[in-house]
Design a protein around this nucleic acid. Structure first.
Lengths: 208, 208
DNA sequence: GTCTATATAGGGATAGAC
DNA sequence: GTCTATCCCTATATAGAC
């Protein structure tokens, strides 16, 4: 593993564990047993490391968001789709811990992060539309936008909320499933009765 | 107005405008045309100012959350109740911009902030229960918890989400109404048809 | 590529005079 | 209560040797 990659990897771990504002370039170098000077040979500054990490996150999540595979799925598929999004966010959760502060330092990051949110929103709308068309749920086209917005907010801030509730302690990765459940809750009331039961079944399987 | 209070007031303004991490004690002193030394005569450190501001926020929002006036209201009342909560949050929005970072520095703050979230959650449950009992909506007791959680998350992170979407620009206070709408959206699908219409009416009145 | 040593800057906070 | 002056610490970043 090349030093440059080790820096990225170590930084990601430390950021996720302690939060980006609490990790200095020296911390990163120490953790890797290299000198700060060496670190700055590979990256111009801390923000460049953050940006590189963002690019990895972007590639990873775009993989999911760009698929057109959101039609004709059953309840378990939808659950898993949301679950995968949560996992990608979990992998790069430090972004979501200090979103505004991190993004305001880098305009390019801002734009591209917002493009991800746009995509996520679109993906949610696609899911809702296709569920609507296959009569799994019934909603007025007018509702789709606001439900999608609520879904995006729940996805984006669930980890932050968890952290808030467990500050100090390490974030429990198991509670990801509860986040998925919260998102599915947003759809639940619109489901036809049979599919409501299907959702309950998936939920009890996953949250046990 | 005593200097101590002017410090609190000025700090609140600057924090809300620029974000707490971007405002130094020097900035605050400069803005007020006093010396940093003077500021430190009135407050031991920056965190003490933050804590005092929190106490003001706590008092202000507890005022709303502690009322037992959540029964037998009509749709407009519920709308206004959520709206008032949003206004209190708006007044102290800097907390919600960097929640985790601010709270992790002060254990007392953490505990008390979480107590506010508990109260907010309880208030939401009370609303849902009372709406349920007066047949405005129908939901299984089992749903109440997860809907309340979604309500709390939407209330807490709506401003953060807005900011994300408009970084750099000043936060548009008018969009508070859209936040209220997002929260009411969570309840909407459970409403009896007549009350759905009532909600739509309130919404169109307030979002125009 | 990697190290050591160091420059630089900014923010938090204090001492002591008025 | 308020000011000036200043200290200290920490984090970022660079220079130059190996």
């Amino acid at each position: 593993m090349k030093t440059r990659d080790r820096i990225l990897f170590t930084t990601l771990e430390l950021f996720n564990l302690c939060g980006e504002p609490n990790v200095t370039t020296i911390d990163i170098a120490n953790e890797m047993d290299i000198s700060p000077g060496n670190l700055y040979y590979h990256f111009r500054n801390k923000d460049e490391i953050i940006f590189e990490l963002f690019l990895l996150f972007e590639a990873s999540i775009s993989d999911v968001l760009d698929t057109q595979q959101t039609i004709d799925l059953d309840m378990l598929d939808y659950w898993m789709y949301i679950h995968i999004i949560f996992e990608k966010i979990w992998e790069y959760r430090f972004f979501y811990r200090d979103l505004v502060s991190i993004l305001e330092r880098n305009e390019k990051l801002q734009k591209r992060f917002n493009r991800i949110i746009d995509k996520k929103s679109q993906a949610c709308k696609n899911i809702l539309t296709s569920m609507n068309e296959s009569d799994i749920l019934t909603l007025r086209p007018h509702d789709i936008d606001s439900i999608a917005t609520n879904m995006v907010i729940s996805c984006s801030y669930w980890l932050n909320y968890l952290q808030l509730r467990h500050i100090g302690k390490e974030l429990p990765g198991e509670d990801l499933g509860r986040g998925v459940y919260q998102v599915m809750t947003l759809i639940a009331p619109y489901l036809q009765d049979e599919h409501k039961e299907a959702l309950e079944e998936v939920a009890t399987n996953y949250l046990s």
